[in-house]
């Protein structure tokens, strides 16, 4: 086999491995969001609203980042039912979108938005080995690697419609 063909084959294999690595991160993140949403849905609408109020008012009371506290007090708590609905169904949509790999960059941006809000509310610092930052890092990686193009519906969309910013 000519040398340039071998180099091309090696590059292609390496590229496939990176695509698969990104797809694995996408799928496990999607499963985590989907199961989190399913627990909230099973708790019922009022169930998660009460949990959210308890987390904001008691569990995270001394930990929330100071610049984020006014937003929680003035906007989220007075509209707790609306926000619990948005969090629950937002997580469900992100979970399904990431598992299927559809509109992955758009979905990953939304996942990143959710996880950053949770990090600011819980006040967890980046150095701490906490789950919250794992979701931020995973969302960022899915966003920059266009992870839906391997083992995802985005592969079909890419072939049909070409390059678009949301897949």
């Amino acid at each position: 086999m000519p040398a340039h063909t071998t180099v091309f084959a090696q590059k292609k294999a390496g590229h496939q491995s990176l695509g698969r690595a990104a797809a694995i991160i996408r799928i496990v993140t999607g499963i985590a969001y989907a199961t989190s949403a399913s627990f909230k849905i099973r708790a019922g609408h009022n169930g998660f609203t009460e949990t959210m109020n308890w987390m904001i008012n008691e569990r995270w009371i001394d930990e929330t980042f100071s610049f984020y506290r006014p937003f929680l007090d003035a906007i989220v708590l007075p509209n707790a039912e609306l926000f619990s609905f948005l969090v629950t169904w937002g997580e469900a949509a992100v979970g399904v979108g990431l598992i299927l790999g559809i509109f992955t960059r758009f979905t990953a941006a939304f996942a990143l938005f959710i996880s950053l809000n949770i990090v600011m509310a819980s006040g967890v610092l980046p150095g701490a080995p906490q789950a919250d930052w794992a979701f931020v890092i995973a969302g960022l990686t899915i966003l920059i690697t266009r992870a839906g193009r391997t083992w995802g519906i985005d592969k079909i969309l890419l072939a049909r419609f070409g390059h678009k910013p949301w897949w």
């Binding site: 991160i25 496990v28 985590a32 969001y33 789950a131 995973a138």
Partner: peptide, 14 residues
């Protein structure tokens, strides 16, 4: 589950 263990396992595989 919705915890970080599954996510970390995925990250290590990646």
């Amino acid at each position: 589950g919705p915890h970080s263990d599954g996510l970390l396992i995925g990250m290590e595989l990646a």
